[in-house]
Amino acid sequence: MEPLLSLQIDDPHRTYQPGDELECECQVDAIDASDIQAIETSVLWYTEGKGDEDLGVHYFERRVPNDAEDGDLRPMHRFATVLPNSPLSYSGGIVKVRWCARVRLFLRRGKELFFEQPFHLGAVAPIRI
C-alpha cells in the first residue's frame, strides 16, 4: 500500500500578497515510522511555458528521524513562511510563473514520493493573446 501524504494550505482561497504569511500543515500516514528516511517541505516558484523551466526555492526544511520526538516523522507538522515581494504569480503568453508548497517523502531503499499544493501570489492580471 502506498503511504498517504497530505499537505494543507491555511487559506482556502489560496491567494496571498507579498509579505503575507503562508501557513501549511503536512502529515504522513499508512507507513511505518522506521521506513521514513527524511521529509522535505518547501515553498517554491517555477516557470512554465515555451522555454526551459526555472525554479526558485523560497522556504526549505529537511527533517530526518533524529529531528522528531521518538524519531517519528509521521505526526502533523506545521511550517510557515513570509512570502517574498517577487516573483509574483503570472499567467503570460509564453512565460508563466507558478507558486506551490511541496512535501517530498524519502523512503528507505531510495523510493521517493511528493505532493504539492498550488497557490497564487500577488494580483497580476493574466495575459490574453
Binding site: 512554465e48 504539492e116 498550488p118
Partner: peptide, 21 residues
C-alpha cells in the same frame, strides 16, 4: 539555474499541454 523537472505535474487551469515540461 537549470533543473530537470521530471516530477512537475500539471495543476493550474491555464496550463498549456504543449509547455516544455
Amino acid at each position: 539555474m537549470s533543473h530537470r523537472f521530471d516530477d512537475l505535474a500539471p495543476m493550474f487551469p491555464d496550463q498549456n499541454p504543449f509547455s516544455t515540461w
